[in-house]
């Protein structure tokens, strides 16, 4: 069951992005940035977490879930450290992903060439 909800909710977020892409002059970069920022804001309002409880990976895997992870890190660090948490929290959860991206990205660049 959770696979189906992940498929449907994740697919819906991507379809929404596609509709925006096909009907506006926005580039994919603009859309990725907007979705991440939207995920962060909705996370800060507590909305995204409730959505994620229902949608599972359908909420976590889109970049909006990445934006939400940024805020979740900030809020949990805020609780632990006070105001310093606002500055240390961004990579509390996402740091794992960002470092993975750098390590694997570099590895791939060393191993492969663009095929075109």
């Amino acid at each position: 069951m959770d696979y189906l909800t992940a498929f449907l909710t994740g697919g819906a977020i991507c379809a929404l992005a596609q509709i925006i892409y096909d009907n506006t002059k926005l580039t994919p970069a603009h859309i990725l940035v907007s979705f991440t920022a939207a995920g962060a804001v909705l996370g800060g309002l507590g909305v995204y977490q409730r959505f994620a409880e229902f949608a599972g990976a359908g909420a976590i895997i889109p970049v909006s879930g990445f934006g939400n992870s940024i805020v979740m890190g900030m809020l949990s660090e805020l609780e632990r450290l006070g105001w310093e948490g606002l500055f240390t929290g961004a990579f509390e959860i996402t740091g794992l992903g960002v470092t993975t991206a750098i390590v694997f990205g570099s590895l791939m660049a060393v191993l492969f060439r663009p095929k075109g």
Partner: peptide
């Protein structure tokens, strides 16, 4: 653009990626 087809393809592709994500989760 073929809006319906594009949206459907995006839905399926994104949905499948999230399903793999659910499996890992």
């Amino acid at each position: 653009p073929n809006r319906w087809k594009n949206a459907a393809m995006a839905f399926i592709t994104g949905g499948l990626i999230c399903t793999i994500g659910q499996l890992l989760y």
